[in-house]
Design a protein around this nucleic acid. Structure first.
Lengths: 208, 208
DNA sequence: GGGGCAAGTAGAACGCGTTCTCGTCGGACG
DNA sequence: CGTCCGACGAGAACGCGTTCTACTTGCCCC
């Protein structure tokens, strides 16, 4: 008797999961984030994540197509929380701040968050180049959230023009983060340069 | 009798190699580049590189600290050749071209080169996030060459201002390349956006 | 309640990057 | 010319991501 069944093709979409499954999924992501903060992404192994979250190794691969996919989902989730923080933080001292200053503050605080948890910066950089389609999808979602947050912070700039500006800022952020965690620049230089980029591309639109 | 000797700490610097060794090193890089073009970086294995270049596996690791290091050296070499091509190509039709148009042409031709050898684009992206210090060093050299080439192409812009601009273009290039090879955007969109970035950050300096 | 099946568990197996072992070679130095 | 020692070749060994196997559990439908 010949079995032709192919199983385990690809992870079930999040929206089609039962509550129990969503719970397991979250527990995997939480364990991954915690372990990355404790020991760093390069020493993290799937077996540990599974042990800590109480999920069998084979099952983890039913939820995430690869280690990259799990890590991408984890950093995307964290980054989304960070963006929400940054945006709401800027709602407070918004009075008297021009667009440029607001965006500079946005990226400065963002960089500081990564500085406080450098392992997450390494995680973001390590995962950015993944070719796993599921990981890539998670990262695309992260990029979209990034764009939306920037859009919210620089509401004065017309959308048509701001689209390019947002991409520039996004790329510069990712690039400087990469240069920092791979030791090609210092954190201070990275932060300074990123802020300079923001100032350069935004001052034309500033109308104080 | 106890041996305490630790060997193989790190690869011998290129400038301290004998001619025979430089030859082996080059042959490893050449084999890696050829194989990446043939089968792609994700299917490339160290064993194949060693077989094709006639170097033993252990010996390869005496020249390069890791697969990442070898691949970084390979893409850096190729990218340097590309830059030389791009710069010399712009020496021809330089008459009548403003700085912006020159740089736009520069990145357009650069993107086209990666389009012709998409496996090398994947290679560049895959290796960009490496944390191996030796790979990182090779990439830093590549980034410097990139900067120098851009500097040559936009000679009219004062150095102080052009430094930031060059970083912006470099980051946007890397970012769009990444978005393309990971399937988050199309090649056409990536090329267009990169050229738009160049135009946005350079037109203020254009003095026709 | 019972039968059937997708989903879960535990852990062995496999592939490839990296390291280790050990025998051989080649070239500098007496 | 002989000797010594670091570099090389061949391939086994090891670690971890990923997949596979065999068994068990939970859930839907009759």
């Amino acid at each position: 008797m010949v079995r032709v069944t192919k199983v385990d093709l690809s992870p079930r979409p999040v929206e089609a999961m039962s509550p129990r499954q969503l719970e397991r999924r979250e527990s995997l992501i939480a364990a991954a984030l915690a372990l990355v903060n404790e020991i760093g992404v390069e020493r993290l192994q799937m077996k540990q994540v599974c042990e800590r979250s109480g999920v069998a190794l084979g099952t983890a691969y039913r939820y995430f197509s690869s280690k990259d996919h799990l890590l991408a989902a984890a950093i995307a989730e964290w980054h989304r929380l960070l963006l929400a923080d940054l945006v709401s933080e800027l709602r407070g001292p918004r009075g008297g701040l021009g667009t440029t200053d607001r965006v500079v503050r946005f990226v400065r605080h963002g960089m500081r968050a990564y500085q406080r948890q450098p392992q997450l910066a390494r995680l973001r950089v390590a995962v950015a180049a993944s070719t796993d389609p599921f990981a890539s999808e998670a990262l695309q979602g992260m990029a979209r959230a990034d764009n939306a947050a920037l859009q919210a912070v620089m509401a004065e700039v017309p959308t048509a023009a701001s689209d390019l500006v947002r991409h520039i800022v996004g790329h510069a952020w990712q690039g400087e983060l990469t240069a920092w965690v791979t030791g090609r620049t210092t954190l201070g230089d990275a932060r300074r340069r990123l802020e300079d980029v923001v100032r350069l591309v935004l001052t034309p639109y500033d109308t104080p």
